[in-house]
């Protein structure tokens, strides 16, 4: 079946794909490498290897506090995003609602809205809200969570609507035919059948929030910065194995979260 020519084409294709994959992974590989250097200066080849930089990470107040804040914000924004997004997806897919397509577009809009624009506009919005209500919003946890929820909702809507569209509508009808009312049908049939979509939405929402940099830059306050901003500020000053070790910890945590999620829902089916 495969002539020499097509197998050559096959190799060229695989080669090109491999190069692209390598290009994507290269920065992660090097940052991981750097984390194990013995010397502090990132010069190649390394003089030797050491694990000492990993013990230096917990001593860096910015990294630790940034991690805790990112975790708090990520978890809260994901939960609120799910609470808002799952019912909305349900209504969009299962009911005919007025202006359905327009609502759908609106809910997905934050996904394509540039982080810089979101950040600046939310910054002025929070200032105006503070002036109007007297509540200290800017730089507060609540303000940060609200903003992050805004970028979590579109992920939830996108993944859960896709999951709903993919789930066989007739199993809901079957449940009703067997005597289940709408609420029972939702809890016993619909929800389990879209669980993979919800898990994926939770993961994507959390990671989007956890890694958000541009928008958060405008919304963090003094002494309250997220992990990506802590890393950015450190890198603006210098690159050394300590920040690399912090990055590796982040890579490992996110990788672990992905592998755990993958047990519930194959990532290749939801991305």
């Amino acid at each position: 079946m495969s002539t020499p020519r097509t197998s050559f084409g096959r190799m060229a294709l695989n080669g090109a794909a491999g190069l692209s994959l390598g290009f994507i992974l290269l920065p992660l590989i090097f940052v991981t490498w750097l984390a194990f250097f013995r010397q502090e200066i990132p010069s190649f080849p390394p003089e030797g290897y050491s694990l000492k930089w990993f013990s230096a990470v917990p001593g860096n107040k910015n990294f630790v506090e940034g991690f805790v804040l990112s975790l708090q914000v990520g978890v809260l924004a994901t939960l609120i995003g799910l609470l808002l997004g799952v019912p909305a997806s349900l209504a969009l897919v299962r009911h005919r609602i007025a202006l359905g397509p327009a609502v759908n577009t609106l809910l997905l809009l934050p996904l394509v809205m540039p982080g810089i624009v979101l950040g600046t506009s939310l910054y002025v919005f929070q200032i105006e809200t503070e002036i109007a209500t007297g509540l200290p919003l800017l730089g507060s946890l609540a303000g940060l969570v609200a903003a992050h929820t805004l970028v979590v909702v579109p992920w939830v809507v996108r993944l859960v609507t896709a999951s709903l569209q993919g789930s066989d509508r007739s199993i809901e009808e079957a449940a009703q035919n067997l005597g289940a009312g709408p609420l029972t049908t939702f809890w016993r049939i619909t929800l389990p059948s879209i669980r993979p979509g919800i898990v994926a939405a939770g993961l994507f929402g959390f990671v989007t929030s956890f890694g958000n940099l541009e928008m958060s830059l405008f919304l963090v306050g003094p002494g309250r910065i997220t992990l990506p901003i802590a890393i950015l500020q450190y890198l603006e000053w210098k690159i050394d194995p300590t920040v690399a070790a912090a990055s590796v910890i982040q890579i490992v945590l996110i990788g672990a979260a992905m592998i755990i999620t993958d047990r519930y829902v194959k990532l290749s089916r939801v991305v």
Partner: peptide
């Protein structure tokens, strides 16, 4: 009457078994 109060057993073309 809504479907759940009719007591008609329906066998679907796609069977519609609950996968979980």
């Amino acid at each position: 009457l809504p479907p759940w109060k009719r007591n008609c057993g329906l066998v679907f073309q796609s069977y519609a078994l609950f996968p979980h």
